[in-house]
Design a protein around this nucleic acid. Structure first.
Lengths: 217, 217
DNA sequence: TTACATCCTGACCGTATGGTCAAGATAACA
DNA sequence: TGTTATCTTGACCATACGGTCAGGATGTAA
């Protein structure tokens, strides 16, 4: 016998169903890729009939587009940390922490993004050319300022950014490989802490920055 | 009018067609993913009728499996450099160079590998569990020996390896993003050289190694 | 030249997929 | 309560895909 419920409001229904669908879609797109994912499987994961998906999202591509856009938003949020910092030790250290946390909490999103870019960004090319380009240029300028102020080594800011992205996202995108090499077990809290520390230590030392709290001598 | 040719030998025919198909498949799988790739498109790229593909490779999955295995071989070759080196400056430096070169010359292969791992390695899980696990353990031991000998900082060897993989493969897997941020142009010889130097400088300094030819003071 | 093995390929098949639709159920609102 | 807007869904459709096959073409070896 079904549990008695008071009727949901239409607004709530829409909001909740869209959320259900988007979460299911992110998971399925991440595990199967755009081509391998099926609307039927997404529907099953969301617990809704397939026709209902098409009521909220007219096409598979429109659903996919929404998933990728949401990921991009999360991704950009981690960027704020960069600007609020007085120097590279805090800024880059906190950025690494934030991106590692995203890799841990939203691995599916990271995989969808990676897959999209690997396939030559068919649906978010404009994001790359505008939003991401602007963000990158801005951050490169910040890093260059730090270099000019003598706060870090004169490395190439662009390739430092690539290294930050690559290293942090690797823990999401290649999570299965990492898990396999960890004897098939997911990384523990301790493993994640160790990963964060390792990445920060190597990169910060590599660019001539002494972690916050230590002395430059 | 077709050019007159002397008839090819059967052995050569098989060898050449398999090569044609495998090259086309690597390209198509990289750009569309396993699910998005079609035998018809692979056939078109290879310049052969679709039925001919099924003559040499009975199923799409068997073709895909062969592609992934070939990539894994190339990937493992770069490993030899590690062992031949007397210390981290030469070993890790040369390994970065080799992997960056692979990213430049075989970007499609790297993408197929990344895609396979992201999808939980449905066809090469045994490679991860055995070949890759053994290789990783062996290399971690080498790094630990270098640490014990005081040739580099006592960092976590596992996470150093992940950083090496992530950073170098990023230039292949996210090549489209990098190209977009490079104003839509592919990286030049100079750009690649700059990338290599940047990666080596930051990582080697980050682990307390002075590049070959410089003095430790 | 003959017999055989290998290679080639257009035509075909069953299935799975993205998407549609019409009819009904449910909430909103007058 | 009656009317309208929104939501739900089983059944259906056209297409595209992986894969098959029969029969012909081509190289091999005696």
């Amino acid at each position: 016998m079904p549990i008695a419920q008071r009727p949901a409001r239409k607004k709530d229904i829409r909001q909740e169903n869209e959320k259900l669908i988007l979460e299911a879609a992110e998971k399925v797109f991440a595990e199967a890729g755009f081509g391998g994912a099926t609307m039927q499987l997404i529907a099953d994961v969301a617990g809704l009939p397939k026709a209902n998906l098409h009521y909220y999202f007219p096409t598979k591509e429109s659903l996919y587009r929404q998933v990728v856009q949401n990921i991009f938003q999360v991704w950009l949020q981690a960027a704020d940390i960069f600007d609020a910092a007085p120097g590279p030790a805090e800024g880059i250290g906190a950025y690494i922490d934030a991106k590692m946390e995203i890799s841990r909490r939203h691995p599916a999103g990271s995989k969808v993004w990676a897959s999209e870019v690997m396939h030559r960004a068919p649906v978010i090319q404009d994001y790359l050319e505008n939003t991401l380009k602007d963000w990158t240029d801005g951050r490169m300028a910040v890093i260059q300022r730090w270099i000019d102020a003598g706060l870090m080594d004169p490395i190439n800011p662009r390739h430092l950014l690539y290294m930050l992205w690559a290293t942090t996202q690797h823990y999401a995108d290649f999570g299965h490989q990492i898990e396999t090499l960890n004897n098939g077990k997911p990384l523990s809290d301790k493993d994640w802490a160790e990963a964060k520390v390792s990445v920060k230590e190597i990169i910060l030392k590599g660019i001539g920055v002494v972690p916050v709290g230590k002395n430059t001598g």
